[in-house]
């Protein structure tokens, strides 16, 4: 800390006060912010065709590649070249284990080591982001999630985690974009479909969005009775609303 001694104490005080005020401002902002485009900018439609046209894995993949499953199985496998040593692998495994055990801080530290050794890999970043979220340090998670999504655009796990964190921060529109982009590239990842539907339902009050995604989800997961109930409830409400609207006219 290089400060002119004449002003250091004042600066220290100011920064201390500044922190307080900044904290207050953040709180106020969080409390008062008038939704940055809650109704959302243009929503990307799930582009199954685009997803289907995802590149086939190369023989010696230098970049991440995606394999689509077909036939009885629906899904995908994202392969990432991981030219890392055994120590990094051990750290990853240990860090992941610690994450499962709720040892978030230790987990994050180990995963950061892995990230430093292999910055292009998404797995340690996604797990580290989860650890930071648990540590209530979303500001440390966000850069990792962004990096992961840059490495593998629309990465379902990274997208889901990022959108969840954005939703928790009240950044609903951004969350929606993340979900939608992911769905466009990985439509077979249904948790994202479900979560996007919930986001539209509970937070964005975009019921048509919610209904569409609930239905898509339900179609893929026909055994989920609960979602069928949600769809019914939503239809009741939207129908009710429509009736009200018609009556109003």
């Amino acid at each position: 800390m290089k400060r002119q001694p004449e002003t250091c104490s004042r600066a220290a005080i100011a920064s201390s006060t500044g922190r307080l005020l900044l904290g207050a401002a953040l709180l106020a902002l969080a409390g008062c912010v008038t939704g940055g485009g809650v109704k959302g900018a243009g929503v990307e439609k799930p582009a199954a065709a685009a997803a289907a046209a995802a590149p086939a894995p190369a023989a010696v993949p230098a970049t991440p590649s995606v394999i689509r499953l077909s036939g009885e199985k629906t899904g995908f496998v994202i392969s990432e070249p991981a030219p890392v040593g055994s120590e990094a692998r051990r750290d990853f495994e240990k860090g992941t284990a610690l994450l499962k055990d709720g040892e978030y801080q230790k987990s994050a530290e180990l995963l950061e080591k892995v990230i430093a050794a292999a910055p292009s890999l998404t797995a340690p970043r996604i797990n580290a982001a989860k650890a930071y979220a648990a540590l209530k340090k979303p500001e440390l998670a966000e850069p990792h999630l962004k990096a992961a999504l840059q490495a593998v655009p629309g990465h379902p796990a990274a997208s889901n985690e990022y959108a969840l964190q954005l939703r928790k921060a009240g950044r609903f529109a951004e969350a929606r974009q993340v979900y939608e982009k992911s769905l466009a590239l990985f439509p077979e990842y249904h948790p994202v479909e479900r979560n996007l539907a919930i986001l539209c339902d509970l937070y964005l009050k975009d019921f048509s969005c919610a209904q569409a995604h609930y239905e898509a989800y339900s179609k893929a997961m026909p055994d989920d009775k609960q979602v069928k109930l949600w769809i019914a409830d939503l239809q009741g409400r939207t129908g009710h609303l429509a009736m009200h609207k018609e009556a109003g006219q």
């Binding site: 629906t74 995908f76 994202i78 692998r89 292999a118 797995a123 996604i126 796990a157 889901n160 969840l164």
Partner: peptide, 14 residues
Amino acid sequence: TDIVASLDGFGYEI
């Protein structure tokens, strides 16, 4: 979000 268990990639299937 599921914890990603593998360093080499991420898969999902139903």
